[in-house]
């Protein structure tokens, strides 16, 4: 784990000629520069907003205190668990549907011709417009949240999977043909590994859209989870407390993106670094 982080940092700084002499020192300087900028930003925010209306603007120190309070009383944790359990379930379902449908479309021209217009149209349209109608059909509870997350997340997975499957290099398919591999073997050993990087980038897009969907669903439907906290504390003009769930959402989104990247790297070991 540590070694791979080291390796990726190496490859990042290798692109810069200045780093060639002493990459470690260069890296420390860059890290310092980033942390310094963050501290400066927070300080400016703290002092500039000190005299502003507390109902409208929260300062970093207030947010830190509010976050700590919400952590202690368990409110933040239970909201996070509520949001995440729904999100993870929705994301997993969207991934499975996306990969299966994408594979079917990529390998079967008839399926592609039938589904392609709808997939593209739904991917391009602002799906938020559908939410009120969805609420009529599936209510405002757990089912509504899941449906909205799936709806937002599934299309990039489908589209990227189709692209990956259809792009498979003819040379690799020839190997399967020459050695008489079964259809299942061709899917498993040739098409799936080839399409994996495409699928992974689809999953990364789906992750971002899924998080948006989760928050939007919590704003508009059940008013629960992290989105519910944001809405409730903003409505109560407790701005500092409204920032705490925002922070959590930001951290979670980034952590999940890193997780997907790690999974992708794990399956992409065969690629040249």
């Amino acid at each position: 784990m540590q070694r791979s982080a080291q390796a990726s940092a190496d490859s990042k700084s290798a692109g810069e000629p200045a780093a060639a002499s002493d990459p470690n020192r260069q890296r420390r300087r860059e890290r310092l520069l980033q942390i310094g900028t963050l501290v400066l930003l927070l300080a400016v925010w703290e002092f500039a907003a000190r005299d502003a209306n507390k109902l409208l603007v929260a300062v970093p120190s207030d947010i830190a205190i509010a976050t700590w309070e919400l952590l202690l009383n368990g409110e933040l944790l239970s909201a996070t668990l509520d949001s995440m359990s729904t999100f993870v379930l929705g994301f997993v379902i969207a991934s499975v549907i996306g990969i299966v449908v994408g594979f079917a479309m990529g390998t079967n021209r008839t399926v592609e011709v039938i589904l392609d217009p709808y997939i593209n149209a739904l991917y391009a349209m602002p799906l938020v417009a559908l939410i009120p109608i969805l609420m009529l059909w599936v209510g405002i509870g757990f089912l509504a949240k899941i449906t909205i997350i799936i709806l937002f997340a599934v299309f990039p997975v489908i589209i990227n999977t189709v692209t990956g499957v259809k792009n498979v290099d003819r040379h690799y398919l020839d190997i399967g043909k020459a050695f008489m591999a079964s259809r299942f073997m061709v899917y498993r050993r040739i098409i799936a590994p080839y399409a994996l990087p495409y699928v992974a980038s689809g999953l990364r897009i789906a992750l971002g859209r899924g998080i948006i969907a989760m928050i939007v669903a919590e704003f508009l439907t059940s008013i629960s989870g992290l989105g519910g906290l944001i809405i409730n504390y903003t409505n109560a003009f407790e701005t500092a407390k409204a920032f705490a769930p925002v922070l959590v959402v930001a951290l979670l989104a980034n952590a999940l993106t890193v997780l997907v990247q790690k999974v992708e790297e794990r399956f992409g070991r065969w690629r040249r670094r």
Binding site: D169, H171, Y172, D174, I175, G176, A178, F179, M180, A181, S182, M185, R189, I190, P193, Y194, W270, R271
Partner: peptide
């Protein structure tokens, strides 16, 4: 399976090891 083919280039599946590439042909047979 009575014929064995050797390709000019891109003849190996890059995501499989040498042994797995050979195993691919064996599994297919």
């Amino acid at each position: 399976h009575d014929r064995g083919f050797v390709f000019q280039q891109y003849g190996l599946l890059p995501w499989l090891t040498a042994a797995q590439n050979i195993g691919f042909a064996l599994e297919a047979k």
